[in-house]
Amino acid sequence: MLVAKNIEFHYIKDQSFIIPDISLNQGEQLLILGKSGSGKTTILNILGGLLKPIMGEILIGGTSLYQLNGASLDKFRGKNIGIIFQKPHILSPLTVEENLQLANFFSGANGGKNEILLKDLGIFDKRKAKVNTLSEGEAQRVSIARALANSPKVILADEPTASLDDDNAEKVVKLLKEQAEKFNAVLIIVTHDQRVKNHISNQITIGGEV
């Protein structure tokens, strides 16, 4: 489903970092652990089609990500990759529901699952609410719902628990796992958060031990 081969990237010449090859089948989960500044987010950006690597290839469902260009990469990303960030980044002029609908619109999906998603994540009551009325935990769940709104094949989460307390962190990781299983999607969580460690057994560590 998701294959990363010979990926190499550098921001400054001579400081390139090599990213371990990754190969995940449908429904498989992976935890990438690393200290701050170890390039975790960079890996995620590369996997998510947001940052073109210097070398190497990413294959998602047989499509080579960086062979696509411009708008078709954007469309592909919208349809097949759901990205969750450290901060929720809900678009504040829109309601919860509309944030999901926007994801549907940009990828051309019909959004039939939005309601079930919101119910599953326990934010259905808040569907008409604006983001500034939501709690931190609720907002993060909205961002998960939005990432899943197009039933993606790959779910990428960048420090999804960093700004949450223990309770919410646990909930969010569980939700992510549950939903990934439900969609039979690949789940990759990038984090330095030790609390996540026990939830996913398949782990790689970059930039030395955490």
Partner: peptide, 16 residues
């Protein structure tokens, strides 16, 4: 800028 970047991750093209 953040919102725009998020829109891009959701599948919006530069043109959009």
């Amino acid at each position: 800028k953040y919102d725009l970047a998020v829109m891009r991750t959701l599948g919006a093209s530069r043109g959009q």
